[in-house]
Each structure stands twice: as structure tokens, then as C-alpha cells.
Design a binder for these strands. Sequence first.
DNA 1: AACGATACTGGTAACGTTTCCGGAACTTGC
DNA 2: GCAAGTTCCGGAAACGTTACCAGTATCGTT
Lengths: 361, 361
Amino acid sequence: MICLSDIRRFLENSKRNTKINMTNIKVVARHCGVAVSTVSRVLNNHPDVSEDTREKVLRAVAELHYIPNTSARNLVRTTSDTIALLVKGVNNPFFSKLIKIIEREITQSGYTLELHQMDTSEDELRVGAQLTNERKLIGILFLGGRFNYSPEELSLIKVPSVFCTYTNSFGTLGADCYSSVAIDDKNAARFAVDTLVSLGHRRIAILTDNQDDHSISELRFQGYQDALKSHNIPYDPSLVACTGTFSDMRAIYRATSELMERDNSFTAIFAIADLMAVAAIKALSDHGRRVPEDCSIVAIDGLEISEYLLPTLTTLVQPVEDMGLACAKILIELIESRGTHRQVTFQTLLREGGSVRRLNT
Amino acid sequence: MICLSDIRRFLENSKRNTKINMTNIKVVARHCGVAVSTVSRVLNNHPDVSEDTREKVLRAVAELHYIPNTSARNLVRTTSDTIALLVKGVNNPFFSKLIKIIEREITQSGYTLELHQMDTSEDELRVGAQLTNERKLIGILFLGGRFNYSPEELSLIKVPSVFCTYTNSFGTLGADCYSSVAIDDKNAARFAVDTLVSLGHRRIAILTDNQDDHSISELRFQGYQDALKSHNIPYDPSLVACTGTFSDMRAIYRATSELMERDNSFTAIFAIADLMAVAAIKALSDHGRRVPEDCSIVAIDGLEISEYLLPTLTTLVQPVEDMGLACAKILIELIESRGTHRQVTFQTLLREGGSVRRLNT
DNA sequence: AACGATACTGGTAACGTTTCCGGAACTTGC
DNA sequence: GCAAGTTCCGGAAACGTTACCAGTATCGTT
């Protein structure tokens, strides 16, 4: 009696001849006379395999230039080896440096990095959830964006994830349900303004993205207000210049120009990012005000280029290497379930440059 | 008699109960009473399916929030949807802008972008070949690097690929076997030097990465030499400052300082990249030489930030948007076999800034 | 000498799709 | 009214790997 398995075997044999060139695990197994399971064991460093066989298999693998098929492996393991990087603003130089560091760490740990860019308007959690389902991601790294998620929103993400440049300062989440890497934004802003005040400045303008977008801009803005208050300097809304962007130089230039036209009484500017300071200095210069002679500027970021400008920027340096390493490390530990959720906050360090000067009274 | 298929069916049924939550194509099929093949046909827009069934299936897909498993699909199709971006120097701002544009195009066409960073020392073709086999890439985009491949080396790459900021100026390859996107480096350099000469400069230094690394630095260096020759200006090796890097500001600063110590007779500098010009201006300033009063500078790149420096840079603008779009477009056309290999060369455009001045004799 | 433990190996279901083949129902043409 | 298309759908192999289970040989123990 012809059984189903006979038919199957026949078909399989007849196919074999047509697909000689494709070196898969079966070919390797046949080449050195062992079973596919044995080859698999060798390749995945399983214990129960003798030294002889291991060597024999490895030799065959090398000879045949065999490379495992990732799709098949992922399919049976129902996972993958890819981590997604969801970033708002790829060409923000701070981020691109961060990406560089993160990529190296991820790759060295044997994972692969997928790059996804998002508009500021997009909902990063929803995009992340979608991607996770489609592509069997094993982790997500969020770079930039707001951070006022509800626990329900956060629960959309089913895989380990780390939020970078986020802090849960709006307090909707418990410390055990998310991981983050950030600087102490509020404190950095406070320090920047303190520095200006200590040099005699009292009319201090702020150059920011937004006042209330639940992102780092808002935190830095709050730090600005706190610092003013602690020095008994009244907060003056006419000294607030909102750019609506972190990276569009033209918009930042325009916001600074408008500030000057509205109220030119400031003697110093706190810019919440280095690039904003650069555009501001240009705008000031074009309106006949020199930095630091006619206006001091302090920023936050500490980009490498800021040390090479004229004048060099006085800025609060974010420890970008440490931050990148922390992101990768926490995420990988979560993935390999060797760690738990945690929130890391780095302190910034003042790098004194030529963009500030004591106010001559 | 118990046949093999009976056993199999039994096992399958016993498993079914344990895996209820996983909505795969089988679940969808059962849910609306059709075969899996029909569901598959609907999802892949195959013709032979009636309007009724199509609608029924789509409704089930929506209800069950079914999302196809990419690994399984890739396995059976023996391909994937991922394109790799192999880049040397992620935080080169020109590249990060390029990446931004490329990412958007790739994503919009339904593909996924993998990011791989490489050291300058690594062999990009070998890395690309390895990745292609492992991960079933469907295309590779090379960003930066040398370009003196032999046909044999190039044949390592079995999938469509585009080389960006490369030109086959060393002439080892036929036009029908590779695709590239670049600017006319030699011409841009020539133009930069011409500009300086037309302003009366004759002692023109060059700030470059390397003289002979078979990359764009070499081409720009050749353009520099060509321009000098055409103006009957003798080439003076002591006016060549090699940085060995495109992005390490400190190294560029040091190279400029060494140049000044070696031979301070130059009245102008041609920097082969904007960031190099930035570091050079700082070095000059620290040595008491102002730009443009005491030294003119022309660069190549046209970064956005260069328009906001003091002084603003005179630079040859690379059409970064067009270049990014071209990369993505050519690659996707190759992948979808709607196009053939081609080499695109863009021209640069002089953007006049404040970093140059006529030499007062 | 018999037995259980140990070390290793082979066979094969399963992962979730796509694609091919064949068959049923329904038209169409003569 | 019957052959020949058409249109649509179901069944099942195949993609290449892992993981589980069962089996064999070797060895030490009583």
C-alpha cells in the first residue's frame, strides 16, 4: 500500500536534484554524514555534541560557505534579531551622534538596527506597536518626542523599549513600567540661567521650541522660569521666542529676529539647544548686536562643533557617549531579561566658551 | 489502519488549543470559512478571487487584527523587504541629511531600512556580501568610502546596489555594472580654487582628508592641482594639510595649526568639506588670523549651518535632496527591475558667503 | 552479567506563509 | 444538450530552520 509519507518522500527526492546550488542546512548535513539536527546543534552551540562531530560540521560549513537563513530561524523561534530605532529628527546632530554610538553597541551585541524616522506629529507608540507586530521586533528605542503617555498607551508596546531624551516628569507612569535615558533638563536650564544671572544679567530671553508640548522643551522652559523666580526676576512673556522646531535654522533665525523687534531690552539669551544659539548669534549679528559684547548666550547640548565657532559656545554638555551606551545597555538587558526597567538621568556639565560676558553696568 | 496523516492531524488539533491567541492566516481562514490559500490571495491582491470573498476576508482580517508574519513570507519567497544602508561616518552632517531623505523614500516605497555603520578601514563590499547572505537583503546603499573596486570585488555583491558619493573616476569598471550618485568632485574643487584665484589669491592652501585614498578626497585634491596648473601657479606640497578625517574637529584643527607653523604664507584655504572650514577658521583665529580679512576660505558641502556662521561660509553646495532622491530611486528601480545601472553626477552651485575677500595687493 | 545512567545522534513536527495543481461550479458555443 | 472554457476555490507541498522525543552506544555500578 502506498502511504502518504512515501509519496512525500518521492516528491522530496525529485525536487532535490533541481536545487543543488542552494546550500542549506540539509546540504551541510549530507556533506558530512550527520543529521540536520546535529548541524543545528553545532551552529547554536548546544552542549550535547562530541568534539569530533563539531569539528567535522564546522569544516563542512566553512567549505560550503554555508550561512543560516535568518527568516527560517526567526520563523521557528517566533522572534527576530532586529531592534528598531524610532527617531524624530535624524539630522539633529545630537541625535546622529547618539545613533552612531547606539548602532555600534547594538551591532556588537549581535543584533540588527532598523531605522525609522517619524514626523513630530506622528504617534510614536502606535507606530512602534504596528512595527512590532509586522516585523517581530525584539526591542524599540525611541529617540525624541513627547512624553505624557498614559499607562494604556504605553501598554501598546509589547516588547522591551527604552525612551531616550524623555523623562517622566509629568508623572503619569510608575518607575517599574518604562525605561528611559535623559539629562536633568529642568536642572540644566536652571543652571544655564543661573550662569547668566551670576554675570549680572536680568533681562534674559529664552529661545525654545515650544512651551507646552510635554517634551524636553517644556522642561527646559520650566527650568528657565524656576531660575528667574529664585532670583526674584519677574517672568516676562515678551522675552520668550518660540521656534516650533529644533533644527530648522531659518525658523530659529526668524524667531530671534521677531524677538528683537518685539523687545530688544534683553542682555542675554538662553537657547535650549546649541543649533538654536548658532542661528540666534547670526540673527543678532545681522541686527548689529555682537556676541558676547552686546548679548550673552548660553545653550544646552555641547555639540562638538560648538567648540569651534566664533565665539565658542558656552553650553551645558550632554554626555552623549554615556547616554548612547546607557540606551543600548538597558535595552539589551531587558531583551535578554537580565535586567529590569530603570530610568537613568545624567547631569550636564558647563563648558565655558566665549559667548558670555559679565554685564557692564 | 492508522495512517501517518491521521497522527499528524491529531497532533495538530491537540496543539490548536494551546495557541489560541496567535492570529495567523489559518485563524483568519477558519473565521470566515475559506481556505488559507484564499486569504493569502486576497492579501496579495491576486486576481482569481470573487468580490464577495475578498470583502469577507478583509473584514475578518480587520476584526481579528491580523498582521502577516514577515519571516514566514520571506522564507517562502526567499527574499525580504529590507535594504541595508552601509555608511562610513553616520554623524557626518551631510550624510545624516542624506540618510533622512533616503529613509523617507525607502519607507514610502514599502521597504525597510537597516543601518550599518562601518569604520573607514573596513571593506564595505565584503561586509555587504556577508549581510546579503545572512539576512536576505534585497538591496544595498553604500555611503562614503573608497572606490577603486575591481570587477571581481564588485561581483561579490549579488543584489542591486547604489554607491553614493562615489564616482568611478579611477576607471576600473564599465558603466553597465554599477550605479552611483555623486557630484563632480574634481570640477567642484577646481571651481573653488578658481574662485579664490579670481580674487587675487595665489598662495592657496588645501585642507583635505587624504591625497591618495581613491575616494572623493583624492578627486578634490586633483581638482585643486588642476586649477593651480591652469593658472600657472606652482603646486607647493608645503601648503597641503592632511587631516586623515572628515569629521574629527580636533584633528582638523591640529592639521591647520601645523600648516600655519610650517608655512604661513598662504592667503587662502580651500577646505574640501564645510566642517573642515569651520575648524580651520577657529585655528586661524586662535593664531590671530581673521577670516576673511587675513585669509579667505572656500569649502565644499553647503551644509545648512554654514549659512549661519560668522562669517558665513562660501561653499559649493551639494544638492543633497536631489542626491538622496536619486539614490533611493535608482535602487528601487533596480530592485523592481524597472531600471538599469546608471551613474548620476550632480553639479554643485557656489553659495557666496562672507569667508572670502579680494586680496589687497 | 545485568542494569541504569550518560553522552550523543537521528528523525521529524512545527513555525506561518505562498504557490502550484486540480477540481467544482458555472458559462459559452455549437 | 454536450464539450470546452472560465472563474473561483481548496488542499497540500515547500521554504530552512529549531526543538522535541526517542533511540543507540558506551560506560560505570552493583
